[in-house]
Design a protein around this nucleic acid. Structure first.
Ligand SMILES: [Zn+2]
Length: 217
DNA sequence: CGTTTTTGACCGGCGC
DNA sequence: GCGCCGGTCAAAAACG
């Protein structure tokens, strides 16, 4: 039966393609992890060997960064808030600081920092109006082909677009960009968010009261 | 027209 | 108090 063999080989070819795509992604992740480790090691060595240069600020920053990076798993930065810090490093092209990961971001600031000639950009997740996630993106001092993004917070909406690979699976869930259904979902989310807020209830009651008295007069 | 980027103003914490 | 510094706001500009 040649058709069976053909089907089997076709299936195998598809599987190989999928696996190679997955492998590529894994390689990328590994490279990112390696870069992360390398920069961290550099900073650690630098911190250990710079006992002569009096830079208490630098030392403090490095220690804090080391702590946040190393104890990310165990005692995930009990700094002051419930906010969850998460660091990630991403390869970049040469001149862009606008990074496309699976979310939509609105840039709301950019500052120059003391110990880094490259500016730092501040983004907020604009996918849902109620999403509190922010991220800071700035090029690394040591390796200029690397930009480091620190995420903060947790998304409260479903992640939508996942991957832009050429593999067989382009797992885009439904909505692309401009659907009334999506807007409806957003409005629903906002409404539930507002009605859950007692302050909003009080304000609404006050407004209604004022309006009724006004019309009653 | 709505949304996003730009960019200086602004604010609050911290060390002095 | 003052200045520094990281973070945010918001008005204008830019984009589609
Ligand atoms: Zn989000």
């Amino acid at each position: 039966m040649p058709s069976n063999d053909e089907a089997a080989s076709d299936h195998l070819a598809k599987e190989v393609k999928r696996l190679s795509g997955e492998n590529k992604k894994l390689r990328e992740v590994l490279s990112v992890m390696y870069d992360n480790y390398n920069t961290l090691r550099k900073q650690y060595i630098n911190n250990c060997s710079t006992s002569g240069t009096s830079r208490k600020r630098k030392a403090e920053k490095i220690t804090s960064r080391v702590n946040s990076e190393l104890s990310d798993e165990d005692s995930s930065c009990n700094k002051s808030r419930v906010l969850v810090h998460h660091h990630h490093i991403q390869r970049s092209d040469h001149t862009t600081l606008l990074v496309k990961d699976g979310y939509e971001w609105r840039k709301y600031g950019q500052k120059i920092t003391r110990d880094n000639p490259y500016p730092r950009a501040y983004f907020k997740c604009s996918f849902a109006p109620t999403c509190p996630v922010k991220k800071k993106v700035q090029r690394s001092v040591d390796d200029k082909s690397i930009i480091v993004a620190t995420y903060e917070g947790e998304h409260n909406h479903s992640k939508v677009v996942l991957e832009a690979g050429e593999g067989s699976s382009t797992t885009t869930i439904g909505h692309s960009h401009k659907q009334p259904e999506f807007n409806k979902l957003l409005i629903d989310q906002m409404a539930s968010f507002l009605t859950r807020d007692p302050k909003f209830k009080a304000a609404l009651a006050a407004a209604l009261r004022e309006k009724t008295t006004l019309t009653h007069k």
